[in-house]
C-alpha cells in the first residue's frame, strides 16, 4: 500500500488494533496452549505413545469425538428445522421458543447434567418409558450423546437463523413457478444457500460437545472404556498427579479438534466462495 493511500484511510489505528489483537490472543490463548505443549515435552516420545495407545485413552477419545460428531449432526438437522419454524412462521409463543433456544448457553452445565440425569434415569419421566422399550439412557454412552445434543443446539440455531432471515422467500416462489417441487426447492435452492452457515453451526456444535465436561459427567456413568469422556480422563490423571499424562491427552484433543475445525472452516470458505457477497 502506498503512503498516500495509507494516509487517506478514514479510520486510523491499524497498528494499534493489530498490536492489541496479537497481544490479547497471545495472553489468552496462545501462551496457555504453548504451556500445554511444553509440559507434554517432559515425556519421551515412547512414554507419550504409550499413554496415547493405552486402551483407556483411546476409548475415551473415541467416545468424546465420536459422540460429539454424532450429536453435532443431530443438532444440524434438528437445528435447521427449528430455525425454519422460528423464521418462516408466525405462531403464538414464537418469541418464547426463540428465547428457550438460548437456555443451554446460560444454564450452568452441572445443573443441566443433573436435570438430564434425573429425567433420563430409570425412574425418570423420560427414562421410565424408554427403559420399558429396552433403551437405557442415563449412565450409558447414549446419555453422553443426549447431553451433547442439549449443549450444542443453540450453536446451530444461532448461526443459521440470521442467514435464513436474510434469504428472500421470493426465491422459493421463483423455484416453485419454475416447476420445482417442494423437495427440489429445499435441496437445490434453500440448503445450498444456507450451506456456509450450516457448516459453521456444525463446527461450533461439535467443538462445544468435544470440550463439554460439566453436564456429561453427571449422566455418563463414567465407566472406563465405555462411557468415560476424554476431558474426564484428563481430570482423573490430574487428581492422580500424573500431569504429563493429562497434558498428553490434552495435546491430542487439541490437535485433533484443531484439524477438524480447520477442515470445516476451509469447507465453509469454499461454500461461501460460491455465494459471493451481495
Amino acid at each position: 500500500m502506498s503512503a498516500v493511500a495509507a494516509r487517506r484511510r478514514t479510520l486510523p489505528g491499524f497498528g494499534l488494533t493489530m498490536g492489541l489483537t496479537l497481544t490479547w490472543l497471545s495472553v489468552i490463548i496462545l501462551i496457555p496452549l504453548a504451556g500445554l505443549f511444553l509440559k507434554s515435552l517432559e515425556l519421551s516420545p515412547e512414554q507419550f505413545w504409550n499413554i496415547l495407545s493405552s486402551r483407556r485413552t483411546l476409548n475415551a477419545l473415541r467416545v468424546s469425538f465420536g459422540l460429539a460428531f454424532a450429536a453435532a449432526c443431530v443438532n444440524l438437522v434438528m437445528g435447521s428445522i427449528i430455525v425454519w419454524a422460528l423464521v418462516r412462521y408466525r405462531f403464538p409463543g414464537r418469541r418464547l421458543f426463540d428465547a428457550i433456544v438460548d437456555v443451554p448457553f446460560a444454564l450452568p452445565t452441572a445443573v443441566a447434567g443433573v436435570a438430564l440425569t434425573a429425567l433420563f434415569a430409570e425412574k425418570g419421566w423420560l427414562g421410565a418409558p424408554l427403559a420399558a422399550l429396552g433403551l437405557k439412557v442415563a449412565f450409558t454412552p447414549v446419555g453422553i450423546f443426549v447431553a451433547m445434543i442439549f449443549i450444542g443446539i443453540p450453536f446451530v440455531v444461532r448461526t443459521v437463523q440470521p442467514v435464513l432471515q436474510d434469504l428472500d422467500p421470493e426465491i422459493e416462489e421463483a423455484a416453485g413457478s419454475l416447476g420445482a417441487s417442494r423437495w427440489q426447492t429445499i435441496f437445490r435452492v434453500i440448503l445450498p444457500s444456507l450451506a456456509p452457515a450450516l457448516l459453521t453451526g456444525l463446527a461450533l456444535a461439535f467443538a462445544r460437545a468435544v470440550g463439554e465436561y460439566g453436564s456429561v459427567i453427571f449422566i455418563a456413568g463414567n465407566l472406563p472404556n465405555v462411557s468415560e469422556i476424554a476431558p474426564l480422563l484428563i481430570v482423573i490423571r490430574l487428581s492422580e498427579f500424573r500431569y504429563a499424562d493429562a497434558t498428553a491427552i490434552a495435546v491430542v484433543m487439541l490437535v485433533v479438534s484443531f484439524v477438524i475445525i480447520f477442515a470445516v472452516n476451509r469447507l465453509q470458505r469454499w461454500a461461501q466462495s460460491r455465494i459471493p457477497a451481495r
Partner: peptide, 28 residues
C-alpha cells in the same frame, strides 16, 4: 404455481445467488 407453467419475473429478481447465471437459467 408449479403446474401452471407460468413465467414470473420478480421486482427484486429473486435469482439463486449460489448458482451461476447459466445454472439459474437452466434451473427450470
Amino acid at each position: 404455481a408449479r403446474e401452471r407453467h407460468v413465467g414470473f419475473v420478480f421486482q427484486h429478481y429473486a435469482l439463486f445467488r449460489h448458482m451461476t447465471v447459466f445454472e439459474n437459467v437452466a434451473f427450470g
